[in-house]
Design a protein around this nucleic acid. Structure first.
Length: 389
DNA sequence: ACCTGGTCCCGGGCTCGGTTTT
DNA sequence: AAAACCGAGCCCGGGACCAGGT
């Protein structure tokens, strides 16, 4: 947050004494313009893309590393800058331009929201053209031709596809093929968690992200909290405790901070108390699914998880009980049969865990339903999203 | 044998953009 | 110009069948 924003905030009448000042600054799903403590990684990425920047053909690049190590934050920020500094958007023909721009275009796509060919092409079209892109009622082949047309002229386009190879997102090999089908100049740069030898794709270059070191993650949280939370709302010691617990995972750490701040906010406190830190940490299961995955789900699935996260323990004791409780909520308009099926689907995809409980009854023993995502942070994001629309 | 939980699959229908007919 | 129609992707609902327990 720059000085103007800070002044603006005071002009809006916010005294700056609440817990939250800028929710997005601490939210695990929003990426900041300049990620703290990751300068060396930006250099490594620029090294990998150097050929493209000096006029040669762009290389294919694979960026990998564990969850919460800053891959998305750094690559998204870098590609945004590269795209902004690149030539005009490709759909805009610049016949007056004397020399073809030597530097390729750059685009960032989240595979979680582009999990099919149709959706990938759609995402690319809206990234490269200003025209509205149809979301339904049009065939994939037709969309392919539209994209081919938009890409045929102009420089190459480096497409960073984030979160490849997760459950529900395409593999690098599938993406390479999809991009090749849609034009010559589309060069993939995939970002995933699997090491290169476990991936069905041979990139020209690889860049590895390592887990955050403790002191760097402290730096990240301190920076985020200084803009996102009220002054001294979270003490240095508390930040260190959360970092210690998070074991280098920035996503989990930020989710815990968000949960702690929500807890304090609800209690009307102006600073985060020890019980709030405990509550914040408790609401983040370990291991846990990234919030970005939860938010990329269809609206009906998000609604089910939202309701599920607020159920008391006994209502989650069996899948049947959870089904009944969720389906009975007024805002859920799915049939119990569908809720049940979706719960099993979400369990398969890792969003919830089923723990079989021994019980003296007849038949196969049921299993308890446990959320595997940051519950408080998700519910807060869900509420804020509902309020803004 | 019987019961309940879990897996898998697919037809139908919804919504939306594009096309043809009125 | 409006209305009717068509076809695309995607979601919902439900049922057939399998698994694991008494």
């Amino acid at each position: 947050m720059n000085i103007d924003d800070r002044i603006e905030r005071r002009l809006d009448g916010e005294p700056g004494t609440g817990v939250f000042v800028d929710f997005d600054a601490v939210s695990p799903v929003s990426h900041v313009d300049s990620p703290a403590g990751r300068g060396p990684m930006i250099e490594r990425l620029l090294d990998a893309f150097q050929p493209a920047l000096s006029g040669s053909a762009p290389p294919t690049v694979y960026v990998y590393g564990p969850k919460g190590s800053g891959k998305s934050a750094v690559v998204a920020a870098l590609f945004e800058r590269l795209a902004a500094r690149g030539g005009p958007r490709r759909a805009i023909q610049t016949t007056t331009r004397a020399v073809e721009p030597a530097v390729p275009g750059f685009a960032y796509v989240d595979a979680r929201r582009a999990s099919t060919r149709f959706r990938l092409y759609r995402a690319l079209l809206s990234a490269t053209t200003d025209e509205p892109v149809p979301g339904r009622g049009v065939g994939t082949d037709e969309l392919t031709e539209t994209l081919r047309g938009a890409v045929r002229t102009g420089p190459d386009l480096v497409v960073a596809v984030d979160h490849v190879g997760e459950p529900g997102t395409p593999s690098p090999a599938a993406l390479r093929e999809w991009l090749a089908d849609a034009g010559e100049g589309l060069v993939p740069a995939c970002i995933g968690r699997d090491p290169p030898d476990a991936v069905d794709w041979e990139p020209d270059a690889t860049v590895e992200f390592a887990t955050y070191r403790r002191h760097v993650l402290v730096e990240v949280l301190t920076s985020r909290c200084s803009t996102g939370l009220g002054r001294d709302a979270l003490s240095h010691a508390q930040i260190r405790d959360i970092v210690e617990w998070a074991a280098g995972d920035a996503h989990d750490a930020l989710a815990a901070v968000t949960g702690a701040a929500v807890s304090a906010d609800r209690a009307g406190a102006s600073t985060v108390r020890p019980t709030d830190v405990d509550a914040g940490i408790d609401a983040v299961s370990r291991p846990c699914v990234a919030l970005g995955r939860v938010l990329a789900l269809a609206e009906s699935r998000r609604r089910i998880l939202y309701e599920l996260a607020a159920l008391p323990d006994e209502a989650r004791a069996t899948v049947s009980a959870a089904t009944e409780a969720v389906a009975a909520r007024p805002d859920v308009d799915l049939s119990p049969s569908t809720v049940r099926r979706v719960l099993y689907e979400l369990s398969d995809a890792g969003f919830i865990r089923r723990e079989t409980v021994r019980r003296g009854g007849k038949g196969r023993p049921p299993s308890r339903v446990v959320p595997r995502f940051p519950t408080t942070a998700f519910r807060e994001l869900f509420d804020r999203d509902a309020r803004s629309t």
